[in-house]
């Protein structure tokens, strides 16, 4: 996909962090220009199939929509490297042949980019192995891997030496407008030592966070990103 092909509106917002600037995107990805690297967390591919396997009727298309969103933001940022901060897949029951075929076909359509997975708790219990990584063209990086001034992780544990960027918690924020106007939106949550990305997957739940004073919170929705 090329940037011209992206028909959906996406918006980005610059955030000062750890002495540098990152671009937070409304489609829930974080871009760091100096190394042309895009970070996403918690894609939870195969969740719909996992639910269906358990007898919960969820329609198809959520996995493809998640991958489509990733292709769009790659095209817009012209990222050369994509790092998944854990929970690429949801569960073992969801790692079906259909998902395998979907991801491989998607990967084949994209321009070349390096793709790395920092394994999360779901990836481990789903049994993500070298064979799957190979088929999907994924490299593997470890918890605590360094990217410029940042330390990358899946779990939000602070580190004395570096600012931590991570996922896992699926942060969301409740907003209250005038009158009965209320909304609950996924968000980026940047604290003094840890920054948490919103869950990237289309079929992911969110959990309310209570930011402390001084934290930067950016709520994201369809085509907009808004500091709150």
């Amino acid at each position: 996909m090329r940037a011209e092909d992206v028909t959906v509106a996406h918006q980005s917002h610059a955030v000062q962090l750890a002495g540098t600037v990152v671009q937070a995107w409304s489609c829930r990805a974080l871009y760091w220009a100096p190394e042309r690297t895009l970070l996403v967390a918690d894609m939870h591919l195969g969740k719909a199939a996992t639910l269906r396997h358990a007898g919960i009727a969820v329609p198809g298309g959520t996995g493809a929509a998640t991958l489509e969103r990733l292709a769009e933001v790659i095209a817009l940022t012209r990222a050369e490297r994509v790092i998944v901060l854990g929970d690429l897949v949801h569960a073992r029951a969801g790692c079906t042949q259909a998902l395998d075929a979907l991801v491989q076909a998607w990967r084949a359509r994209q321009p070349a980019f390096a793709w790395d997975l920092l394994g999360g708790n779901h990836d481990r219990s789903a049994g993500v192995d070298d064979s799957l990584l190979g088929r999907w063209g994924l490299g593997q990086i470890a918890e605590g891997c360094v990217l410029g001034p940042f330390r990358l992780a899946h779990h939000p544990h602070a580190h004395p030496d570096a600012y931590v960027l991570c996922g896992h918690t699926h942060p969301a924020i409740r907003l209250q407008g005038p009158g009965r106007d209320r909304a609950r939106l996924p968000c980026f949550w940047f604290g003094p030592t840890i920054g948490v990305l919103p869950a990237f997957g289309v079929l992911t739940g969110h959990f309310d966070v209570r930011p402390a004073a001084g934290d930067q919170v950016l709520a994201v929705g369809d085509g907009f990103i808004q500091p709150v």
Partner: peptide, 22 residues
């Protein structure tokens, strides 16, 4: 335990997904 959590999904998320995909 964990296996039950893996198949939990909120009704509002389901509503959004159904509205869009079904």
């Amino acid at each position: 335990g964990k296996s039950a959590r893996q198949v939990q999904v909120s009704s509002s998320l389901l509503f959004d997904v159904l509205s869009r995909f079904d």
